[in-house]
C-alpha cells in the first residue's frame, strides 16, 4: 500500500498500451509488405498482456501479505506473430509473384488493426484517468491536518 504503487500500476498499463499501439502501427505500416528479412511476407504481430505478479519477496514478509495483494499492474509477456495463413492475391505483374501469378500478401486485416487501435486508445485514456484520480487523492492526503 505504498504511496506510489497505484501510480506505478497505471504507468505500467500506459506503457503496455503504448507498446500495443506501436505494434498496431507497425502492422498497418506493413499491410502491403511482401519482403522481409527471412523471405516471407510480413507477419502480423500481436502483443500478449499478462498480469504483473506481486514480487515473491512481498509474500515472504508477513506484514505485507495482505497489503500487497492488490497487484502491481500489467506487463507485456511478449510480442507474438500471428500464424494465420497469408492472403493470396493474383497479380502476375508483381515482382514477388510465383509462376502462377499468385502473390502472398501479409495476413494483416486493416479493419482489425483499426478496431484494436481504438481499443488501445480508449484503454490508454482510462488509465490516464485512473492516474489522475490517484494523483488528486495523494494531493488531497496532504491537506490532512491543515
Amino acid at each position: 500500500m505504498g504511496l506510489f504503487n497505484s501510480f506505478n500500476i497505471s504507468a505500467s498499463a500506459l506503457s503496455a498500451q503504448r507498446l500495443r499501439m506501436d505494434i498496431i502501427s507497425q502492422n498497418i505500416a506493413n499491410v502491403n509488405t511482401t519482403r522481409t528479412q527471412d523471405g516471407t511476407p510480413y507477419r502480423r504481430k500481436t502483443v500478449l498482456f499478462q498480469e504483473k505478479e506481486v514480487p515473491f519477496s512481498h509474500y515472504l514478509s508477513r506484514e505485507s501479505r495482505e497489503k500487497y495483494l492488490s497487484g502491481s499492474g500489467v506487463r507485456v509477456a511478449g510480442i507474438v506473430e500471428d500464424t494465420s495463413p497469408f492472403k493470396e492475391v493474383y497479380d502476375p505483374s508483381h515482382p514477388d509473384a510465383d509462376e502462377n501469378g499468385i502473390v502472398r500478401m501479409p495476413n494483416v486485416e486493416i479493419i482489425t488493426e483499426m478496431v484494436n487501435m481504438i481499443s488501445a486508445t480508449r484503454a490508454y485514456e482510462a488509465n490516464v484517468t485512473a492516474l489522475n484520480s490517484s494523483k488528486s487523492m495523494a494531493l488531497k492526503a496532504l491537506e490532512i491536518g491543515r
Binding site: 500500500m1 500500476i9 500495443r20 492488490s70 497487484g71 499492474g73 485512473a130 492526503a141
Partner: peptide
C-alpha cells in the same frame, strides 16, 4: 486508498 490501487490494477488489466 487500497481500493484506488485495486481499481487501477483492474483498469490496467482490462485487456
Amino acid at each position: 486508498w487500497l481500493r484506488n490501487e485495486v481499481i487501477s490494477h483492474n483498469i490496467a488489466n482490462v485487456d
